[in-house]
Every structure is written in structure tokens, then in C-alpha cells.
Design a protein around this nucleic acid. Sequence first.
DNA 1: GTCTTGTTTCGACATATGTCTATCTTGACT
DNA 2: AGTCAAGATAGACATATGTCGAAACAAGAC
Lengths: 119, 119
Amino acid sequence: MSKQDVSISRSGGCCTPISVAALDEATASEGAAVFKALSDPIRLRLMSIIASAGAEVCVCDITPHFTVSGPTISHHLRVLREAGLVDCERRGTWVYYWPLPDRQQWISTLLSVPEPASA
Amino acid sequence: MSKQDVSISRSGGCCTPISVAALDEATASEGAAVFKALSDPIRLRLMSIIASAGAEVCVCDITPHFTVSGPTISHHLRVLREAGLVDCERRGTWVYYWPLPDRQQWISTLLSVPEPASA
DNA sequence: GTCTTGTTTCGACATATGTCTATCTTGACT
DNA sequence: AGTCAAGATAGACATATGTCGAAACAAGAC
């Protein structure tokens, strides 16, 4: 697979990148909502911690990485959840979070820049 | 005009997706700033119009697509400019905007999901 | 020069957002 | 039952943001 094929294959699946066609209002609103969820440094770090974990992450393992209060972390996790980027489940005393890659992949594809055809 | 007051720490080697490694605070702040620029429906549509044009776009051709006032469009374009996503130039009476694909590609890669979304 | 058009900047406003403390819910363990 | 700990929720607060109208600015037409 060539490097050019990567961006093309990523764009081929679920949606048309903005570099190819302008967004209609509804799609723009939906996409903007996802971007808004990632528009805070703490939330973006939270997302990266959950996405990179390769497994469920306990909130108790997340909180120590930050200086803000527990409720603030909880609030940010809820925003990520409501954006469809993560989901969670309580098991016993602890709550575990995991990523929902579909949404993440969607906006990634939306932003992908097709390789300029050099020919 | 073309002022770009955002320092871009990367560029050459691009970056590691969040699905692979968690972000440090500095990169998270930088990334969140770009996402914030795209977190408004009007700005996301503006970005898509400029990115998909394949050429410079005159502001006079952009404004009619929206119902908000001219100053509001100008404000949103400035946010995109300060995020390093677009640049512009005045030529005669009109101002033309074009995309800066580096920033766009950067956050696209940041969000890319290496593994298949649903295995 | 003055006028007209296109675009940005300014100043103000209502609403949204991030953060905190205090309180509540859930479940584990005596 | 009672108690404790992990998280979530509620309410309050200061700040940030999106929007507008008015004014300023830039460049061409007259």
C-alpha cells in the first residue's frame, strides 16, 4: 500500500472530507459538536488517555493525572460521552471508560487532506 | 494581513495519533486550540468551503451562504486564521482566503484510528 | 477630491463554558 | 443496619464566546 492510498482509503469509507466537498448545515453542526468536545485541553488529554489505553480505563487511574477537582473531571468525561466519543460502565466501586472509535474516525476522515496528485 | 500568530510546534514528522499515545499537556493545549476553531458550525462550514474550493475564495462569495451578518463572518474567519487553518490576502477591493493544509492534516492524523473501527 | 462598495474592527450584550464546593448515589465491607 | 470510598450531580460563580450595529478602513469609480 502506498502512502497515497492511506488518505484515500480513509476518506473512502464513511464520509467526504471537507477538502473535497463543503459541508451542509446539518453535517457541520454535527461535526462542530464533536470538535467542541475536543476543544478543551483537559478533554483532549482525557480522550487521548482513554483512546491510547488499549483497554478500559478506571476513572481512579485518570484523575491523578490532572490538577483539577474530581467533579471537573467527571464533567469533562460526560461531555466526551455525550459527544459519542467514549462510553463507560460502572463495575463495583469503579467506573471504566473506553473509546468509541467510530466518531473519532469520522472527524479524522472529515479533516483528511488528500495527497496532491503529483503527475 | 497574512498574520499567523499561532506557533506550530510540529510539522516535519507530523505526530502520533491519540489512539497510540496519550498527549502531553502542551500538545493537548495546541490541539485543543485547533479543535476550538472548528467547534462552531459556521466556522466548520467556512473551513469546508475554503478547503473544498480548490482555489482562493473571495469573502464576497462566502458571505451569501450564511444568514449571519458580515462582521460575524469576518470574526469567524479571523478565528480560523489565528488557528493557522487558513490564510488570506487582500487584492484590490476583495479579500481572498485559502486553506493551510498542514494544520488540518495534523489534527486529522491526531485523531486517526489505526485499527479497524469494528473488529 | 467625494462617493460607493467590500471588509475589518470596535463596543456592547446575552448566553455558554469551565471550575469550584457541597451534596447525592452506588456499591463494598464490617 | 452503619460506614466508607469512588463518581456523579447540583448550584453558583467568573470568564469566554457568538452575535449584532456602528464606525473605521481600503480601494476603486466618478
